[in-house]
Design a protein around this nucleic acid. Sequence first.
DNA 1: ATAAAGCGAGTAAACGCTTGCAAATTATGT
DNA 2: ACATAATTTGCAAGCGTTTACTCGCTTTAT
Lengths: 333, 333
Amino acid sequence: MEKKVVTIYDVAEAANVSMATISRVVNGNANVKEETRKRVLEVIDRLNYRPNAVARGLASKKSTTIGVILPDITDLYFASLAKGIDDVASMYKYNIILTSLQESIGDEEQILNNLLSKQVDGLIYMGKQLSKKVKRTLGSSKTPIVLAGSVDRNNETASVNIDFTDAVYNIISQLVQNGHKKIAFVGGSLENPIDGKYRLDGYKKALKKAHINFSSNLVFEAEYSVRAGEAIWDAVKNSGATAAYVTEDLLAAGILNSAMKSGTKVPEDFEIFTSNNTVLCEVTRPKMSSIEEPLYDIGAVAMRLLTKMMNQEQIDENTVKLPYSIVKRESTK
Amino acid sequence: MEKKVVTIYDVAEAANVSMATISRVVNGNANVKEETRKRVLEVIDRLNYRPNAVARGLASKKSTTIGVILPDITDLYFASLAKGIDDVASMYKYNIILTSLQESIGDEEQILNNLLSKQVDGLIYMGKQLSKKVKRTLGSSKTPIVLAGSVDRNNETASVNIDFTDAVYNIISQLVQNGHKKIAFVGGSLENPIDGKYRLDGYKKALKKAHINFSSNLVFEAEYSVRAGEAIWDAVKNSGATAAYVTEDLLAAGILNSAMKSGTKVPEDFEIFTSNNTVLCEVTRPKMSSIEEPLYDIGAVAMRLLTKMMNQEQIDENTVKLPYSIVKRESTK
DNA sequence: ATAAAGCGAGTAAACGCTTGCAAATTATGT
DNA sequence: ACATAATTTGCAAGCGTTTACTCGCTTTAT
């Protein structure tokens, strides 16, 4: 006995109305007599009818699905953003199609096309930056997109972020205030505008304000990993730096561990500020002081913004900057 | 000038063939003359045709989409599993719809219905355990499901795991070998069969083997968080335990930190073994020894298994247990 | 009492694709 | 050259919904 799928027709028949009426009650359309609605609802329940979202999508041209593109879901930074997105999405009854950016560069376009072919109603992008090509593809579709924790140099694309420059400016200023003259800036690839432009700008700005000359010897580039952090410590130490601002928590944890292990006391002999305030900051010993990006909120706001765009609502701010704060723990004085 | 969506008809017209032929070349059907195929491909490229996956889904009754249900994406344990799933899924051209299990209990059923309404071709579940109700809903659909890092008491449902009991047995045996008589078992909710049954069984078994009496005073239940770990340390210490096996990394990290802070040297005065070998183990100082669950692989194998089920291939093993290993770092002797 | 307006429900045409079947074309063997 | 087989194509019927349009029946106003 094969299990038959219950369709709108079956419900219509059992409830003695036309399928249009079923559709109306399922969609909450007001043009249905209360009595009929009740009867239909009952039948739906009895037959265990489950509207086919694919068919609905085809007929309505809405999939109630959004595409989320991120580099790596095991990176707590993105996972936190994703959680914010997910919560708001489910609040608005959207489903999320998650896709990771693979190593290979070229496939960003392919991922996008795949998502568009699935008729997603919107997109959230958390990669490093949108390529021209991708932007073009996006432009030719009408699918709205917003960047979360990612920036668009030209502010053409909607995005939600914190003011990276400002945050780093503050951090560095505090370090300066603590008497440091040589402060290392340890970032990921400087090609990524967040590190290479915004954050570095904040660093430079703070130094300038304090009349300290910028020296590229104090700027380090490393992969975002504990190992890379451990490996770079010697270089950082040898640069003469007495404090460091690190753009990512794993990296910072690695540096911290190497420092402690090599006998450099943190924060007494060396202060460390990191950037993402993931749970890692609480796991290291000493616990790390960090910029607190409201990651969950960034994701949530990005998703909320996207729902507005999908509803064609008026958007007042294309680029929203959320407030950040600074959490002092034990890696700074 | 409104942008028109390019459909299969447009391509057919431009290529001077019927839409059926377009469909065939898009689907790689062999019954197309090479010359025609080339021409069509060219037109597809020129018009920038992107097949509508929703329409395909409706016509073919396949969505090339699977649903993934997990408790919390910011938990590295699940994130790692998810990554394995994602990679294999994209290898097989499936998309993933990610849904988080909210706090509220009752909605598991709703989540499932939503996913089924989206016509997912398969499901991967990583929650604590499938409720009867959910199982029933699942049974009435034909959608295959596999559990990843989650267990089914009755082995009715396909699942991929490690042998939790065996792993813990080994850990505890090593601790016993190191001379410990009082070993704490610190888990999450013991209602969860993984902790409360499988792991605890391994613990008991190892004690028994060593002729050590099991004492419930040495069994602790705590939330999976750093704070909970820090908070529980005193109780653990006061129980007289000289070593602990902890079922989750955050929790272990909290315990470790409190121990060190309170002057108890790890591993000299107290040994700690944890369970998930997430990156946290490398971030704490001392770094933590851990069972190494091949999380990524579990996810990957689960997804692979699911593809087989979706293809109606013969499955030899309903329940697959992957090999685990034990990584010794600095929290044990 | 009667026309206008409104409500509730049905009809049928999309939506963009897959696919079984039949028709047309080309290749093969004699 | 002809029949037959094999290869390519086209036709059209779905797939399960949504949604304009219509239509009959009540209300309401006059």
